[in-house]
Simulated scan of single mutants.
Amino acid sequence: MQTSSHAVAGHAVFETALGFMGIAWSEAGLTRLCLPQRNRDAVERRLLRHAGIAGQAARPEPQWVTELIASIKAYAAGEDVDFSAVPVDLAGVDDFRLAIYDAARKLAFGETTTYGELARRAGHAGLARETGAALGANPVPLIIPCHRILAAGGKIGGFSAPGGSTTKEKMLAMEGVRVGPPPSAQVSFGF
C-alpha cells in the first residue's frame, strides 16, 4: 500500500449492474471509491466533496484504472473478482488503520471475519470497536472489503456506505454469504 502524499489525478463515474459508482485516483493509486447509488449526480457529488477532485481537467485514464472499472463492473454483475492487487494511495492514514486495512485486503471473495478477529490479525487484539471505526472511515470500500467484516456472533454490524447495513448484506449475498434469517423473497439490488 502506498502512503505518500499525492494529488488526485482523475476521477470517473460509471454505471454498473448495481447502480452508479465512482472512483478517484492519484499517480500512486486509488484514493476513493463510492459504492452504488441510483444516479450519476449523487455519486459525482460524493466524489466532489473530497479535496482535490473538483475542477480538474480531464486526463486519459491510466490502464490500471480502465482495468479496475471493468473489474468493478464484473463484480457488480456477480463475478468473483480479486481486488487485492489494486494499488491504493492511503496518504495521511495512520498506522493503526493501515494495519486494519492491510488485514482486511487479505479476505477473499465470500470470506468473512469479525471485527475482533480482524483486529487480532492486524496485531491489535482487543480493539474490535476501534477496528469498526477504522473500517467506517475506509476511503476505498470493496477494494478494502470492509463489507466482509461482521459483528460478534455473526451479526451484520454497521456499514457507512449509502444504504447502510442493507447494502452490506446485499454485497455479502452476492458473494454467497448469508447473514441473519433466510430471505423471504428474492433479493433486490436497488442501492
Rank of each mutant, 00 (worst) to 15 (best):
Y115T: 06
G92K: 14
G92F: 15
Y115V: 04
A76W: 09
K106Q: 15
E67A: 09
V93I: 11
D89F: 01
A76T: 07
A91M: 09
V65H: 13
D95A: 09
G78Q: 10
R97A: 12
A104H: 04
P87S: 05
V88N: 00
A119Y: 13
Y115K: 05
T66C: 11
T113S: 08
L68A: 03
K106A: 12
A77C: 07
E117P: 01
A74N: 09
T112P: 12
Y115L: 11
Y101A: 04
G92W: 15
V65N: 04
E117F: 02
S71V: 04
Y115P: 08
F109L: 05
I100M: 13
L68K: 03
A119V: 12
L90V: 08
D102M: 02
G110S: 10
D95I: 06
V81N: 03
S84D: 01
S71F: 11
S71P: 12
V93A: 06
A119F: 14
D82Q: 03
V88Q: 00
I69E: 14
Y75W: 14
A99M: 14
G110E: 10
I69Q: 12
A70K: 12
L90W: 15
L118M: 09
E117N: 12
E117D: 11
A85P: 00
Y75P: 03
A74E: 11
R97G: 06
S71L: 12
T66G: 12
V86M: 00
E79P: 00
L107K: 01
Y101R: 02
A119D: 13
L118H: 09
A108R: 14
I100E: 14
R97M: 14
A119L: 13
A74Q: 12
E67C: 05
A77D: 15
R97K: 13
R105K: 10
E79R: 04
I72P: 07
A104L: 11
T114N: 04
V93M: 10
A91W: 15
A70L: 13
R97Y: 14
T113A: 05
D102H: 11
E79F: 02
F109T: 02
I100R: 08
A103C: 13
L107V: 01
E117A: 09
T113C: 10
A76Y: 11
Y115W: 14
V86H: 00
R105H: 06
E111D: 11
T112Y: 15
Y75V: 01
R120S: 09
Y75E: 04
A76I: 08
E117V: 09
V65C: 11
Y115M: 06
A103W: 15
D95Y: 10
V93S: 08
T114A: 04
A91L: 10
E117R: 15
F83N: 00
V88E: 01
A104Q: 04
V86T: 05
F83I: 01
F109Y: 15
P87N: 06
R105C: 08
Y75H: 07
G92L: 13
T112A: 08
E111C: 02
V81R: 07
D94K: 10
P87Y: 07
